[in-house]
């Protein structure tokens, strides 16, 4: 084991630190306390001085700033993180399990020849590092032990966001990045998924998932949405199949919705879906599988067949 330090790398996009950065501080400071080391936080690229000020929150001992580039580029991140790791020599490297985190964490772990455990929902220290993660569509909880040093990516919104100010020292860190090692070029960003409706504004949402089985069956949930005067939304497979347009997709890569009522029909409740609807006031789920993770966040549920329940509901609300 190294000296028990933890190195966490913050995430930002288009000038904003992403919330997971403050969650990494929560996960990192607990871990550093257990390991008897310090928490190092790194900010790479963008306005590093202002980012450093903002991640200087309770529990961070050192903030390293790497002034390289504006936006995320995985080649820069991989090189900088590797160099920082070698300089700090931490026991645990903590990265976000975001789309960008997954675009460089596996490369860094491979480059450093250290084990990688992704998508952690809990972290403890025994002899080794004990990581809890979810498998089989969140129906199984798996515990994995990793020898240290190890790299771990943490799931969004599993740790609290640290808000209290800290008293870390801020240290600029320079890396030598040779130009040919930067192979990927980020050409820009585009917002997608705008269109006729903004499901983010809807008060009542009827949302449909893969349990609907066939495109032709969508008519049934459309009828229910009409009867309830609700907006129709969907999980990703429905949109991937082209059955509904992208602007109807709820979730991590779709829209975040906060309706009064979210009625989930035949949706399992994958973490990327839940990311988009957990803020709903009342969540109702209809699902044939009693173990479906959607029931963990539902306020009301029916373990049953949507094809039986939905027609009954339509009958009760049809005017």
């Amino acid at each position: 084991m190294s000296d028990g330090d933890v190195l966490a790398v913050a995430e930002h996009r288009r000038g904003e630190l992403r919330p997971v950065s403050y969650e990494l501080i929560a996960a990192g400071r607990d871990l550093a306390a257990d390991l008897g080391g310090d928490l190092h936080v790194a900010v790479i690229g963008g306005d590093v001085d202002s980012f450093a000020e903002r991640v200087n929150r309770a529990g961070a001992d050192v903030v390293h700033t790497v002034d390289e580039g504006e936006e995320f580029n995985h080649d820069v991140y991989a090189a900088a993180t590797t160099a920082l790791f070698e300089a700090v020599d931490p026991s645990v490297l903590l990265l976000p399990n975001s789309v960008n985190g997954l675009d460089y964490a596996p490369a860094v772990a491979t480059r450093l020849s250290i084990p990688l455990v992704s998508d952690a929902v809990d972290l403890t220290v025994a002899d080794d590092l004990v990581v809890t993660r979810e498998t089989y569509g969140s129906k199984v909880e798996t515990t994995v032990e990793a020898t240290t040093p190890a790299a771990v990516t943490i799931r969004d919104a599993e740790w609290p966001s640290v808000e209290d100010p800290g008293d870390a020292t801020v240290e600029p860190f320079t890396v030598d990045i040779d130009a040919p090692s930067i192979r990927s070029t980020v050409r820009g960003f585009e917002e997608v998924g705008a269109g006729d409706v903004d499901i983010g504004e809807a008060e009542f949402i009827v949302s449909v998932g893969r349990g609907i089985d066939e495109e032709a069956n969508l008519e049934l949930v459309e009828e229910l949405a009409d009867a309830l005067d609700a907006t129709l939304a969907a999980s990703r497979p429905i949109v991937d199949n082209g059955w509904l347009p992208k602007n109807r997709q709820v979730g991590q890569s779709g829209a975040v919705v906060t309706p009064k009522v979210y009625l989930a029909l035949g949706i399992s409740g994958a973490v990327q879906h839940v990311a988009g609807m957990k803020g709903a006031e009342t969540i109702i789920a209809v699902n044939t599988d009693p173990d479906a993770p959607i029931f963990d966040i539902a306020d009301y549920g029916v373990v049953g067949d949507l094809f039986e329940v939905v027609p009954e509901l339509i009958e009760r609300f049809e005017s």
């Binding site: 996009r13 820009g188 585009e190």
Partner: peptide, 15 residues
Amino acid sequence: RRELEGGVEELTSVP
């Protein structure tokens, strides 16, 4: 195009 969170896509080229 890399699909980021929140309906944002990143346009990237790799050799």
